[in-house]
Write a protein that binds this DNA or RNA. Sequence first.
DNA 1: ATTCATTTGTGATTTGCATCACGGGCACAA
DNA 2: TTGTGCCCGTGATGCAAATCACAAATGAAT
Lengths: 238, 238
Amino acid sequence: MRTPYGLEIIENCVACPHREERLFCNLPEPAVKALAAITSSAAYPKGATLFVEGQPARGVFILCNGRVKLSTSSADGKTLILRISEPGEVLGLPATVTGKSYELTADIIEPAQANFIARNDFLNFLRENGDAALRVAQQLGETYHLAISEMRTIGLSHSASEKLARFLLEWSASCPEEKGQVRIKMTLTHEEIAQMIGSSRETVTRLLADFRRKQLVQVVGSTLILRSKADLEAIVNR
Amino acid sequence: MRTPYGLEIIENCVACPHREERLFCNLPEPAVKALAAITSSAAYPKGATLFVEGQPARGVFILCNGRVKLSTSSADGKTLILRISEPGEVLGLPATVTGKSYELTADIIEPAQANFIARNDFLNFLRENGDAALRVAQQLGETYHLAISEMRTIGLSHSASEKLARFLLEWSASCPEEKGQVRIKMTLTHEEIAQMIGSSRETVTRLLADFRRKQLVQVVGSTLILRSKADLEAIVNR
DNA sequence: ATTCATTTGTGATTTGCATCACGGGCACAA
DNA sequence: TTGTGCCCGTGATGCAAATCACAAATGAAT
């Protein structure tokens, strides 16, 4: 079995903890078997690329470990990051089902392990398993939902500080909260944050410093503490 | 059968030319029958609203005639238009399959006729008809694709003129072209264009005047002629 | 410890465009 | 006709943020 980049195949997707968790949990036994048969697993180092925007879709990647940056770039090198994928997510799904090209580029930002399913195998599997197809539709709906959220941060803000505040709040949504405070492990560089909210690296640096001065956030090493979600929300609804 | 707004039911989806064309053409006969049984058709005047962002999803609307504006707004009234839907498209699909709230607001901008399918009926139908579910997944994939395009125009541009140029080119993509020229029936106000590209009404007015001066476009009544797609592309890749 | 690369912090400058303000055109109704 | 809305056009103004240009810090590698 060939894999992109000729990286070594680790195992055939048995022990991977996240496996098809989100997408294909609770499928009937034969379906799970069929899925396992067409799945191959590989490890990717930091900096590797799963697929590139514009490439014809080869198939889907189910992320088991690590984190992946999904982005799109313009001709002059400007980059917009759509989202950072966490383990359990399925990458390349829209392009694979529609048969178009990947609309985004997927770069590994933390060493990752992923299960790959080739497009034809995947489509055949979906045709055989109607409930899996429905599951895929739901997954796509959620992906769409996230894209819309991202659009809102970028498109509905009046100022860069509003965008950053929106971003921090969305980013923190997945983290546990205790009395208005949230601790976030911020693994993104200012540059990357800028690319997520559509602004420049310098303004992100300045705004974060500003937020710190205003006691809105606190920085301890690489963890960010939102000291007052309420105040951040005030900025958003300024 | 109750319909939103208590508008009169015109017919039970027989003569509607676009029917489930895009989404459910070529389904086996019994599936088509089952679909017809759960579908109800209604007409909506200009200005009516099919659904509002934040409402729990009631079901999907298949647009037969007319045009619909899909948008999202912030608390302070700023609006971002995601896209203008044409006949044949299915509205509310992501929210309906995921069971979340509608993420956008759907306003009728040209008198419309649409077929409505309630969420439960629709999901049951998909469970019974695996191939239809796959079709839905594909439709969702394309919707996602369009959202990404929109993100690119807004997020990857350095200037408003770049955004407008991108917008015009995307908008013209669906129109027939002859030797670099494209005629577009521009049914949007400057305000609406501004809301699509994330800028202000005045800038759109000014930029269009500017484009006219530079012979990039020509305006005849409500039709816009792109005199030079190549030059517009040059602006995009400035 | 010393290099080297990446990331972060900050000042100075400049400009694009949002915003405000207003006038004029056009449609449609009373 | 005269209103009443809704678009479109355009000038003046101010500010937020991109951009440029370094310097300081961090951290990885040898």
